[in-house]
């Protein structure tokens, strides 16, 4: 037990491979940046939102006034 410990303590320290720091920094620099929606995608999202949204909002307004919407009774 003591021999093992002595041998471990006597061994040279673990050294990083050569160029380690440069490799890490290089990988960070080349890491993919988060994908951002393109201008076209953003625009299409807004068009979709309003395309569905306008009729949905109109329907919602009709919903609020639904019991006031009359049918004809003779």
């Amino acid at each position: 037990m003591d021999d093992d410990l002595d041998r471990l303590l006597g061994a040279p320290l673990v050294l990083p491979p050569s160029g380690f720091t440069a490799t890490v920094m290089d990988r960070i620099a080349n890491a993919p940046t988060p994908v951002r929606a393109s201008r076209m995608t953003t625009m299409l999202q807004w068009v979709a939102l309003f395309g569905i949204g306008v009729p949905a909002a109109a329907e919602l307004a009709l919903f609020v006034l639904s019991v006031w919407t009359t049918s004809s009774a003779g």
Binding site: I52, A56, E59, L60, S66, V67, S71, A73
Partner: peptide, 21 residues
């Protein structure tokens, strides 16, 4: 917007209150 709300409108007008002219 296109299922729950219209179904609720229909339920209210059919089973609760409806307005007539």
């Amino acid at each position: 917007g296109f299922v729950v709300v219209p179904a609720t409108v229909d339920a209210v007008r059919t089973h609760e209150v409806q307005s007539f002219d």
